[in-house]
Structure formats: C-alpha cells, structure tokens
Amino acid sequence: EGFLVFAPEHPLVRDHLTRLSRGEALPAQVRNAADGAAEALYGLGSALMQDTSSDLSEVYLHLALYLRPDFDIARSLLAGAHESRKRWQDAIDAYGKIDRASPLYMNARIQTALALDRLERDTEAVAMLRRLARDKPDRIDPLVAIGDIYRAKENYAEAVIYYERAIALSGTPADRDWTLYYARGICFERLGEWDKAESDLKLALKLSDDHPLVLNYLGYSWIEQHRRLDEALAMIEKAVERRPNDGFIVDSLGWARYRLGEYALAVKYLERAVELQPDDPTINEHLGDALWKVGRRIEARFQWNHALAMNPEEKRVKLLRAKLEYGLEAAESAEREEAAADAVGL
C-alpha cells in the first residue's frame, strides 16, 4: 500500500490490492525459467529506455515477449518506446495485443486512442474513449483523455464538458486532482471566462503545492491582463527556479519583464527561451517585440518573420503582418482601435 503514495493509480498495484482484499492469492511473477529470463530482459529494456539514440531497449523487450508472450507490462513498455519515437501505428499494434482481462487493458485502450489522435484519427479516438467511459462509468481516465484531445484541438467548450464530468466523479478535491482543475482552468481562460479560470487555477496551485506549470500559467495570465504584476513576476521566477530549462516558463519571465518596461532584461530571458524552445511562434514573437523596443529592429523583423512561418494562431497572423509592415507601435495601436470598435459594435 505504501507504493500507492508514489503511484496512486497504478493499475497493477490496484489489481493486486483488490485481489488481496478478496482473499485471493496473487499470480506468480516467475513461473518457470523462461519467465525468469523474460524478467531479466525486461529489466534491461527498461533501464535502456532513456537512451533514445538506440533501439537496443526494444530488442530486449521483444526478446522478453518472445519468451513470455503474456508479459503485458513489457508489451506496454514496448508500446511506450514506440510512442517516444513517434511511431504511432507501431504503438497501436503493441497496445492491441494486451489482453482484455489484463489490469493494463484500460491504460492500453486510452494510449491507443491518444496514438490514433496523433495520426489525425481523432473521431475514431474519441469514439473509442466514449465506449470505454460507458463500459467503466466509475473511471475518470477516459473522460480526461477526451478532454485532453479536445483541448489540443482548441475545442475548449467541448473539453470543459468532459473535464467537468471527471471532476464530478473525483468528488472532494484532493492533491492528485490538481491536473483536472489546471486543464479546466486553461479552457476557461481560452474561452474568455476569466473568473472561472482564475478560481480553477488557484485551486490547482493549492492542490499541487505550487507546481511550476500552474505558477507559470496563472502568473502569465495576470501579466497579459496587466494585473498583479509584482505577484505574477514572483510566481514565474519561482517556476523558473524549479524548471530553468523549460522554454515556455523562461518565456513567461521574459514577457513579465517586458510588461514591466524592463526591455533589456526581457531580451536576455527571451533569447534564452528561444534557445530552449526554438519552434514556438509565440516565444519568437515575444523576442521580436523586445528586440524592437531596444532598437534592434532588423533582428525584430527577423523574429516576427520566423514566428509567422511557424503557423501561429490565426488571430496572431494579422498582427504579425502588421508589425512587419508598420512596426510594433503602429500595429498595436491599430489592434487596440479595432478591439474598441468591436466592443461597441461598430
């Protein structure tokens, strides 16, 4: 039971505890010499998983499965190795061989759905997860997975529906539930329902004991709204201390400095953020804005062009083009005038 402190939802541990509570004997981990060899090969494969430059871990896992075809934990690890290399169909094929009676079956089906989504077969993925939710009405995992798929597709209203169903099932908020409130808070923020978003993010912050992701998202949101800037800055600095190599979090710190008018310092952090996360359009746009403010205008236009080439959100495309044509101040002024006109229905 002590293991549950570190992995509260581990399916194998849950299954074993359930069996013990019914007075059942646990299945033997090693039934014969072949099983023992499979265990050893699995251990080697698991140890080598971090080496993404080599397929050696997969070789050991295939050997383990050859010796013990019903070794579902090895098959799950093999599927995970395929996922880490973005071989989504191989992952689907591996998960598909896990027996329906296995404690790992639900996780296999959820991961299969997520892999299908990666292959842009999201309709099929959501349908699979809905069936799983109907079959296991007491489990939140399929609902969360559906919410995650919709959130990734920027269908935030639909995502909220599934996160709310998961939250209703989870009962009184517990520490492990912080990701539910964090995810729903992001959706509310994207939908423009800030009061609900702020409430969820504050609860997620409390439940997660100041997780860097929550510190960053809430702090960044306040900065974007020009609210509670000192508090927001302190939160993001704390997040950077905990995750100094996270480009998105370092970007938030640079953007906070930008909002405070500390443009030279903003450039320092935003250049670092681009080094860490070079393919994000928002971070590149932020760096362009900061470079413009310190007079490095050729470099600023380069960053804006770079951001535009990265398929940014549609609402950013028009502003980036305006920055390139007219400069930062004129583009932002035009954006404010357009927003004011929209607000009064002109």
Rank of each mutant, 00 (worst) to 15 (best):
P173A: 15
A7P: 04
G192Q: 02
L253D: 10
R121L: 11
R14P: 01
P69G: 03
R184K: 06
G345V: 01
D70G: 09
G96R: 04
A25T: 12
L346S: 14
V13K: 00
F71D: 13
D55P: 13
I98N: 10
L41R: 04
A256M: 10
R87Y: 02
A307N: 06
D99C: 07
D195F: 01
E332K: 15
E198T: 11
A25L: 14
T282Q: 06
D90Y: 03
P103T: 09
E154A: 14
L201Q: 07
E325A: 15
D251P: 12
A159F: 05
R316S: 15
N305W: 04
R259H: 15
A232E: 08
D15A: 10
S208Q: 00
P173Q: 14
D35H: 13
S84F: 04
E9L: 07
A174Y: 01
A133R: 02
R131H: 08
A273C: 03
A174I: 08
G147P: 10
Y217R: 14
L229A: 13
E313F: 13
Y95V: 01
G295D: 14
G45N: 02
W222A: 11
T18P: 00
A339K: 13
A232H: 09
N305H: 15
E335Y: 09
K293H: 01
M49K: 02
G247C: 00
Y182D: 11
D141W: 14
G247P: 06
L319S: 07
R19C: 11
L201C: 04
W255F: 14
G261Q: 05
L287Q: 05
D90M: 05
V250P: 14
E271V: 03
D279V: 08
R118K: 09
N284Y: 00
I236H: 00
L203V: 02
L77Y: 00
E313R: 15
V160A: 14
H62E: 13
